[in-house]
């Protein structure tokens, strides 16, 4: 009897304790985050150029972006293309690497470290590598493919310099850093209770069956995590295009975040850039809220299914 009462009492306290546990983050958000976020919202209704005092122009930035700006829609389309391809591909490659590296063979630590290497090398080094591989004239890939090109009498692929291939090339380059999500998958794999595998072994389940019926379902929390994070991150893709293609050729890799950056740094239109940021936030928020519905397919060991 006493125990039941204490559980009920704790449930009542839970509301307070919940806020207490969240309080460092909540405090940070409200005290340190609130002002900058509010200011950027305010800037989106002004013609702020980062030098002069902003002047309020109400919805003018939003009107222009939505009704009289071709590049806005174009860059949004390019970004959507990137999201649709890069997110699933990233998840697939990350999972593949994690499965590959979740074995107990000799030297696995070395392999894991090597696979993670691209995540720690400098961006400049990565850029040089990509150029060295993909550069159409001197690049290794085209040198290797030369016999094929000769066989089919086709012109060598232009990779990031070809406007039809540039988006895919950048996505391909992005996969080099899949080691980051691999780490998350690996960490999750360690949380899978051995007892589950043991009882499956008793039932005589094959490796493949164990993967499909035990590992994969129990991996869904981190797959879900990487999916949501991939969505949020891919909508803001920028750096790789900035370094490799400058948004080109012919604006084929002119992502939304790139356009936003240009509005800010090249057009000195911070007000417009802020409006773009808030439009992006709304778009990503809607997509994410829909994506969060997938949560019901996620299998959390700690919850009733």
């Amino acid at each position: 009897m006493g125990k039941t009462i204490s559980i009920i009492k704790m449930r009542k306290q839970e509301n307070l304790i919940g806020y207490l546990f969240a309080s460092p983050w909540l405090f940070g958000l409200i005290v340190l985050g609130f002002f900058p976020i509010l200011m950027s919202f305010y800037f989106s209704f002004t013609n702020y150029n980062m030098v002069s005092a902003p002047k309020i122009i109400w919805f003018e930035n939003y009107r222009i972006l939505l009704t009289n700006d071709n590049l806005f829609w174009k860059s949004l389309g390019i970004t959507l293309y990137h999201v649709v391809i890069a997110v699933p591909l990233g998840i697939f490659v990350g999972l593949f690497l994690a499965f590959l590296l979740n074995s107990k063979i000799k030297g696995i630590s070395i392999y894991r470290t090597l696979f993670y290497l691209p995540n720690v090398v400098s961006v400049v080094a990565m850029t040089l590598l990509w150029m060295w591989l993909f550069q159409p004239n001197f690049g290794l890939i085209n040198q290797l493919l030369k016999p094929l090109y000769d066989l089919f009498k086709m012109e060598p692929l232009g990779w990031y310099l070809d406007q039809d291939l540039s988006k895919l090339t950048l996505i391909l380059m992005g996969l080099w850093t899949a080691g980051g999500s691999m780490v998350i998958y690996l960490a999750q794999m360690q949380d899978i209770p051995v007892t589950l595998y043991e009882s499956a072994d008793i039932d005589g389940a094959s490796w493949f069956k164990k993967m499909i019926h035990i590992t994969l379902p129990l991996m869904t929390p981190s797959i879900f995590f990487n999916f949501i994070m991939g969505l949020i991150g891919s909508f803001q893709v920028f750096t790789i295009a900035y370094i490799m293609t400058g948004g080109g050729p012919s604006r084929s890799t002119y992502y939304y975040a790139y356009y936003l950056f240009d509005k800010m740094m090249n057009d000195n239109a911070m007000g417009m850039a802020s409006a773009m940021a808030w439009i992006l936030l709304v778009i990503v928020l809607i997509v994410t809220v829909f994506a969060l519905r997938l949560n019901k397919y996620v299998f959390y060991l700690g919850e009733d299914s």
Binding site: L29, S40, I232, Q236, F261, M264, V284, L285, T288
Partner: peptide, 14 residues
């Protein structure tokens, strides 16, 4: 959701 949203605002504008 608010927490997720804080990641959606490009850092440059704040």
């Amino acid at each position: 959701i608010v927490m997720l949203a804080t990641m959606m605002l490009p850092i440059q504008v704040i």
